[in-house]
């Protein structure tokens, strides 16, 4: 009996300690102005993906991240800070990107992030810089042809923790079992190992995977609209506006199309003419 009381006491103390810690932890976002800070340091720190072909992928040769989003981020940095502006890149995953932004480790997220009402409660988005749609990647010859084929008991869909597509698939194929891996490299590996029938995420990402893995195809067309935006912390209105202006400028000058063509021009299944701005 004495032991039980002591145990309850310990647990109560523990819970009390944790609640105190939690309430300290919930500090408001930094009230600094990201734009002024960036201008001072002449650097913008971007969170980018490093496991996503075409958008942001680690190049093993020189240990640098390369892709459409990296090039867009560089172009935007030059527009905002002038031609000497430095773009710094921090590798993020769908799971780590919002905490890192909220913590101020990064100034903006340009990492295949769809603008959704849910996320707009946490972060602010710029205008869309790429219009994706959710699709499926399957093994060639798979009986899965579209998202309806997945909506059966016994089918398994693979996705990535923290991505928008895992929420959507719950609506379009509620009967399928959903496995969430920690990044796209893991998810693709799991698909190849037969851990799931299909991998679902945005078509742009899937095209990149299909290009590299000849045994796999993108099927069923897109069943959602996924406009990608750059996420900044709430309240950083000046920074967001300057990014929007910069985006409009590179769209007008043709730099956007040049970058789009560089990465997506030769991707089978991707319609460059439709996507250019």
């Amino acid at each position: 009996m004495k032991k039980i009381i002591r145990y309850i006491g310990v647990m109560a103390a523990l819970c009390a300690a944790l609640i105190v810690l939690t309430s300290c932890g919930a500090k408001p976002l930094s009230e600094q102005n990201v734009l002024t800070n960036s201008e001072k340091s002449n650097t913008i720190t971007w969170g980018v993906k490093a496991d996503t072909k075409l958008f942001g992928l680690m190049d093993i040769k020189d240990n640098r991240i390369k892709g459409f989003e990296v090039d867009i981020a560089k172009a935007l940095t030059k527009q905002v800070l002038g031609s000497k502006g430095q773009a710094k890149f921090v590798q993020v995953t769908s799971q780590t990107r919002i905490p890192l932004l909220a913590n101020g480790n990064i100034d903006g997220i340009i990492a295949t992030m769809t603008i959704t009402p849910e996320r707009e409660k946490q972060v602010d988005f710029t205008n869309s810089y790429f219009d994706a749609g959710q699709a499926l990647l399957v093994k060639k010859g798979s009986p899965i042809h579209n998202v309806k084929d997945l909506n059966q008991k016994g089918k398994t869909v693979l996705g990535v923790v923290g991505s928008n597509s895992v929420e959507n698939i719950g609506k379009y194929a509620p009967k399928a079992r959903l496995l969430q891996l920690s990044d796209y490299a893991q998810a693709l590996t799991a698909l190849k190992s037969g851990q799931g029938d299909a991998l679902t995420t945005d078509n742009g990402i899937l095209y990149g995977m299909a290009a590299e893995n000849p045994g796999y195809v993108v099927v069923g067309g897109t069943f959602t609209e996924e406009p990608y935006g750059i996420a900044v912390n709430q309240g950083q209105t000046e920074f967001r506006q300057s990014l929007n202006t910069a985006l409009a400028k590179i769209e007008k000058s043709g730099e956007y199309n040049r970058i789009l063509k560089k990465w997506f021009g030769n991707v089978p299944g991707f319609n460059y003419e439709e996507a250019k701005r």
């Binding site: 939690t22 932890g25 923790v161 923290g162 969430q180």
Partner: peptide
């Protein structure tokens, strides 16, 4: 991990 990225209350979830 799933709850943290849905609720976006990272620290609270891990607590």
């Amino acid at each position: 991990n799933v709850i943290a990225s849905n609720s976006l209350q990272t620290i609270n979830t891990y607590m």
